[in-house]
Amino acid sequence: TRPNVYPLPPGTHLLFSQSGRIEHVPLEGYEMKKNDAKAVLHLPETVIIAVAFDCLEKMVYWTEITSPSISKASIQGGDPVEVIGSDLGSPEGIAIDHLGRTMFWTDSVKDHIEVASLDGSQRRVLINSGLVNPRAIITDPPNGNLYWADWNRDAPKIETSYMDGSNRRVLVKDGLGLPNGLTYDSHSSLLCWADAGTHKMECMHPGRGDRRQVMEGIQYPFGIASFGKNLYYTDWRRDAVIAVDRHTGRESDEFQPQKRTKLYGIVTALAQCPSGQNYCAVN
């Protein structure tokens, strides 16, 4: 059988989904090496929405909505392996806790958030109330926090809880439209989101509650990822990945794949896991 995954060279990459494929662009510093962009994985019969990356085992995880499932594959080559294949409605967001070796996902049909070990075992529902259109979900493993966004048109919100679902709180509810994308940068402790309703990109320190606009007038963001001072988002109108400098609030680059269709989730595949120990290992 032919391997489905085209191995990636070492280094930091952006991984993003475009319908039946996962593409990558290498990062050199903050720059997208567009000429080296390639498909990592080609599964034409699927519609891949969210992507997440396990920096420890160098695996990409993704959610698929045509026959709803969650799968993974090594970016160093090999075949995809399905990890969750039943009892899914519309899995649209996925996040990895590389320290705790678990994954979290949102389901916008079942309107809940689930957690399972990275092999799909020990699966359980974590949050099952007060969700209408949950989509983006993000982990902060060193601090044991979970963040997610619900683009419910009547009451959009960004929420947080511990990774066991306890201490659930609403972080943001005012001035939101369609918060499709969410990302957390552990270096700066910044939570940033991209909103297709307000057409804004904003950031805040979840602990401090300060909130700052990075950019406005963006077209139709879907996914967002962070790397250092940069934010990278996918856009449904531009069919492109757009790089934004978080400090200057300016667009610095754009990558438009040859294939012109919607781009969905995006994630930074770091060459090494960020330092930090498991919050559970402390006591």
Binding site: R2, S19, G20, P44, E45, I65, Q258, K259, R260, T261
Partner: peptide, 23 residues
């Protein structure tokens, strides 16, 4: 693999032979 795939399917279509519809 030597497999031939279409790279620029018409709007709304996808797949190796443009045999599928986009989301």
């Amino acid at each position: 693999t030597g497999e031939v795939v279409c790279t620029n399917c018409p709007a709304g279509t996808t797949g190796k032979r443009c045999e599928l519809c986009d989301d």
